[in-house]
């Protein structure tokens, strides 16, 4: 098989692949892996293939999925946000404090939850773009700071007893569909449109692809980055809201290592670790792969320690495959 032959008569697979990337912004491999994983789990466990279990998977995926959207935006701009899990925890505690300790009405508490995340993201973005500190360091620092702040605010204790309407956001089931799943899907659709079809999204990818090209094209790269980290923090805040309202409490230890799963989901979904490529639909497939994997391993009664190993392994494997493909594609 010679490369010239392959390029002159593209096979069915590569034609489908091109269409899929052009129209849906999804790489076909990720869909194949998801379907393969579902088939495998359905064979291995008699409890897997049911509507209620699929709802469970979606519910479990919703929090991680929202974080993975944040990770997709930041990664595809050539950045990195390691503070997602900690900001999730901080936001949940801030929301619970507003609602329970301060007795604020639900809308205020909800805004405070998301706002706390956005503020943490704004701080990240400010230090990265104005202080010229690498994103890796800044968000690693925020990982520690946000977690510590969550423990300080809550005095290290879980804050129980959210008001009824907040709990509805996490536990309500209009038409039998859990609220977090509805919120997750709506946010995913909106953010997919933003990344794939708006100037903001196209500029995000361009900055990650070639920062210099974006700058010479007149894009304000620093300000754009600042908004991206703020958006990332805000989405982590939303994830914190979903998490806290689902367990009806603000837990300062919520979301530990969630950034690992979120970044893994984004990369499995086709986001380039070094920027320039990413799509929310792809990330959704990636998040579902992680969700199905965890759910299936649970049903098969695999210890959670092994599950952590599986997530770490999948992350490395996904980047390996991506890098391998890029080497193949650029080979002359």
């Amino acid at each position: 098989m010679t490369p010239t032959h392959a390029s002159s008569t593209p096979g069915l697979w590569s034609r489908l692949q091109e269409k899929s990337i052009e129209q849906l912004h999804i790489r076909l491999e990720s869909i194949v892996v998801l379907l393969g994983l579902i088939t495998l789990m359905a064979i291995l466990s008699p409890y897997f293939f049911s509507v209620s279990n699929f709802m469970n998977i979606l519910l479990a995926t919703s929090t991680i999925g929202v974080l993975a959207i944040a990770a997709t935006f930041v990664l595809s701009s050539g950045g990195l946000d390691l503070s997602l899990g900690s900001v999730l925890g901080l936001s949940g505690v801030v929301g619970a404090t507003f609602a329970v300790n301060l007795g604020m009405p639900t809308p205020v508490a909800v805004l405070a939850t998301i706002g706390a995340g956005a503020l943490a993201g704004l701080v990240n973005g400010f230090v990265i773009t104005r202080g010229f500190v690498p994103a890796f360091i800044v968000t690693l620092g925020m990982l520690g700071i946000a977690r510590g702040l969550a423990l300080v605010i809550s005095d290290g204790r879980v804050i129980y007893g959210l008001p009824e309407w907040m709990v509805f956001l996490g536990q309500g089931r209009p038409f039998g569909v859990p609220m977090p799943v509805i919120i997750f899907i709506v946010v995913a659709i909106i953010m997919h449109i933003v990344l794939a079809y708006t100037r903001y999204g196209r500029h995000t990818l361009s900055i990650g692809d070639n920062e210099n090209a974006a700058r010479t094209a007149g894009i304000n790269v620093e300000f754009h980055r600042l908004t991206l980290y703020t958006l990332s923090g805000g989405l982590a805040g939303l994830a914190g809201l979903l998490f806290a309202t689902r367990i009806n409490s603000g837990d300062p230890t919520a979301g530990i290592t969630y950034e690992l799963t979120a970044i893994t989901a984004a990369i499995i979904g086709g986001t380039n670790l070094f920027g320039g490529r990413g799509s929310i639909l792809g990330t959704m497939i990636g998040a579902l792969i992680m969700g199905v994997l965890q759910n299936g391993l649970n049903l098969l009664a695999v210890q959670s320690y092994y599950q952590q190993m599986a997530i770490g392994g999948v992350l490395v494997l996904a980047v390996f495959i991506d890098q391998y493909q890029q080497r193949q594609e650029t080979k002359v």
Partner: peptide, 23 residues
Amino acid sequence: YQDLALAKQQDVASNIFLGREPV
């Protein structure tokens, strides 16, 4: 520019209209 300042992972249209995308 000498280095062309292209976004290499984006297609031709995206590069030509970079920063001036019609909406």
